[in-house]
């Protein structure tokens, strides 16, 4: 106790000695305050617009808010979450989301790696090729969606032209629920494999030639050199490309919305984002949608979290 008293006394004397005016002046002159206009404004805007929004959404998800009016915060429970988790629509949307996430990301990575290896392995004029593959990436989802809508068209689409020329029956790419998701993934891969290729190509080109030469002298064939020496060195490129792809997979809403121009995407392609928007803005089930949104956020954090942790461990954060 005695020690505690002593400390207090010391603080008191310092307070008296310095005085509150000079303390204030000292505070106002500190780097923290003087730099506040620069970081403070974005900080406040971000807090309100993003984190405020997330917080508000989180709060609503515990209420029964529906239709017009204001949310009632008097009874908060997890009813919306249990309701969502037990609904078939939610389960199937979550499944589709998972398939999209895993399928799209994996195929994009493998295809991008393959293209990058081919280019790196000595096709000349590789810079022109890079642009060709990267071009789809520069298109907006809306354009891609419209483009593939035409290509997937049952009667006049180019894909069915090929299929019928080969002697098969025309396929209803987007109308058949069991292949619609595959068709959507295919279109997204078309758009994003160029991106993964460029990421991998940059990784490949930073690997010095002598790695290939050392492996050759060591007796490894070209394929084994890539498998055992080169590709393992692309770990960082893979991680960063995978994170970007997964984030895009989660926000494929734009693509699906643009494909049909309404909240109801083709049968079999409903994902959490489309389900959430439809529930909210078509049916006015705000609380229910907020619960879906929260779960979607948790999924996204599940993707980003490990990446951030990885970066943190590497010391790059």
């Amino acid at each position: 106790m005695a020690t505690h008293d002593n400390t207090e006394q010391v603080t008191d004397t310092t307070d008296e000695a310095v005085g509150w005016e000079s303390k204030l002046r000292y505070f106002l002159n500190s780097d923290f305050v003087r730099s506040a206009p620069y970081w403070g404004i974005p900080f406040v805007l971000m807090s309100i617009a993003v984190y405020g929004g997330i917080g508000y959404n989180f709060a609503i998800s515990f209420t029964d808010y529906e239709g017009l009016g204001t949310p009632d915060y008097s009874t908060l429970d997890l009813e919306m979450y249990t309701q969502a988790l037990s609904s078939d629509a939610f389960i199937s949307a979550a499944q589709n989301n998972l398939v999209l996430l895993v399928g799209f990301t994996t195929i994009c990575l493998v295809l991008g790696l393959f293209l990058a290896v081919l280019l790196d392995h000595g096709i000349r004029f590789s810079e022109k090729f890079q642009t060709v593959y990267l071009l789809p990436m520069s298109l907006s989802f809306v354009v891609t969606a419209q483009l593939w809508l035409w290509m997937f068209n049952v009667e006049s689409g180019i894909l069915n032209l090929v299929v019928t020329t080969l002697g098969f029956n025309p396929v209803d790419w987007l109308g058949n629920p069991s292949i619609a998701l595959g068709a959507v993934i295919f279109a997204l891969i078309w758009q994003f494999s160029g991106y993964t290729m460029v990421v991998y190509l940059a990784g490949l080109q930073s690997i010095p030639d002598d790695q290939f030469e050392a492996a050759r002298v060591d007796g490894a064939s070209i394929i084994r050199t890539y498998l055992r020496i080169i590709v393992p060195q692309l770990k960082e490129a893979s991680v960063s490309a995978a994170v970007v792809l997964m984030v895009f997979a989660l926000k494929a809403f734009t693509f699906l919305y643009a494909l049909v121009g309404r909240y109801r995407p083709p049968n079999g392609t409903d994902i959490l984002a489309t389900l959430m928007v439809r529930r909210a803005f078509k049916f006015g089930e705000w609380a229910y949608s907020a619960a879906i949104a929260t779960m979607l956020l948790i999924m996204a954090l599940g993707v980003i979290g490990p990446y951030l942790y990885y970066q943190y461990k590497q010391g790059s954060l």
């Binding site: 010095p208 002598d210 790695q211 030469e213 050392a214 492996a215 050759r216 002298v217 060591d218 007796g219 490894a220 064939s221 020496i229 393992p232 060195q233 770990k235």
Partner: peptide, 19 residues
């Protein structure tokens, strides 16, 4: 081909496999 020559080489940069 280099693979089948039974010759070993030490590189200036060492060219060790970093992973």
């Amino acid at each position: 081909s280099a693979q089948d020559r039974d010759i070993a080489m030490v590189f200036q940069s060492y060219a060790l496999y970093p992973h």
